[in-house]
Design a protein around this nucleic acid. Structure first.
Lengths: 152, 152
DNA sequence: TCAGTATACGACCGATTCTGTCGGCATTTC
DNA sequence: GAAATGCCGACAGAATCGGTCGTATACTGA
């Protein structure tokens, strides 16, 4: 539970990889898949999804492939997850959909919706760029702290 | 993805219900299940799990049932989810387990582990008591803001 | 113009996980 | 001892997920 799907994982990894290779004009799905040992056809579908959602630009034909549609700083982890797995809800019945099927307007949903928003906020505050800065100098000078507000 | 299981939902609802009925000595699984339209046998197993993990006290026999083992303020949503669904990881391969099965030490896990911790922190900051205070006066006077720090 | 490389997309199946049920047993109260 | 309740393991149906296949389409370069 509360687990990212592998697809979302793969998508994040792929975007990170693309962000780390800005010099190359485009990388094919196979390139990225090989780099990480991901099933190529599966990754291809994921990259297509990301393209459809405007996070990547694709280019067919020889020497084709994918490139980031925006600066890595401008793409959030939230967008990636949303593009791949669809709307983001931690509870099965959130008021976005039809109302809760459980009988008496299950009152627990409302506080959990706040939690949902908070988590979404955390994911929105993380960019692909952030993912690439994984090697931390021992002094931890490069760390960034972000404050997220949870309103109950 | 990133969705609570129904069991965790049910568990939270049940604890909330117990917290809202402090006067009664003990409520049976059936009582709670009927109140929410949850399958009784399923809820029973969930409550047993919560008992095993020290969040509830149980009492067999007639007029038996469950009661909170601690004050509702002292039970966090995190504990409930953890008790029901087990260890909390947003990624399938977190360094807790055997290392990532994907080939080159998939570097994305490390930043995501921070996200994981942040989300866990959010859930830890929410108590069952918080869930019961769902009706907000229009003035929003009773709201509480909590700050969560995300360290990248 | 043709061959090769690449994306695009839908259908499908096997595996895993989740939800819910059943049956039997233990414990307490009346 | 009977009724109510918790305790526990096994299991079946359903849903979701992961991954594959086949085919169509688009672009490039010789």
């Amino acid at each position: 539970m509360l687990k990212l799907t592998k697809k979302a994982d793969y998508g994040l990894m792929a975007l990170k990889y693309l962000a780390e290779h800005p010099e190359t004009p485009a990388l094919s799905a196979k390139d990225v898949a090989d780099a990480y040992g991901i099933p190529a056809q599966l990754l291809a579908k994921i990259l297509q999804l990301l393209t459809r959602n405007g996070l990547l630009r694709s280019h067919a034909g020889m020497n084709g492939g994918y490139e980031l549609a925006r600066d890595a700083r401008e793409i959030s982890a939230y967008e990636v997850i949303h593009a791949i797995d669809g709307p983001f809800f931690i509870t099965s019945c959130t008021k976005g959909d039809k109302n809760c099927d459980l009988t008496p307007s299950c009152t627990i949903k409302e506080p959990l919706a706040r939690v949902n928003d908070t988590i979404a906020g955390v994911l929105k505050s993380i960019s692909i760029q952030d993912l690439t800065e994984h090697e931390q100098p021992a002094g931890r000078a490069a760390e960034a702290n972000r404050l997220v507000t949870l309103t109950l």
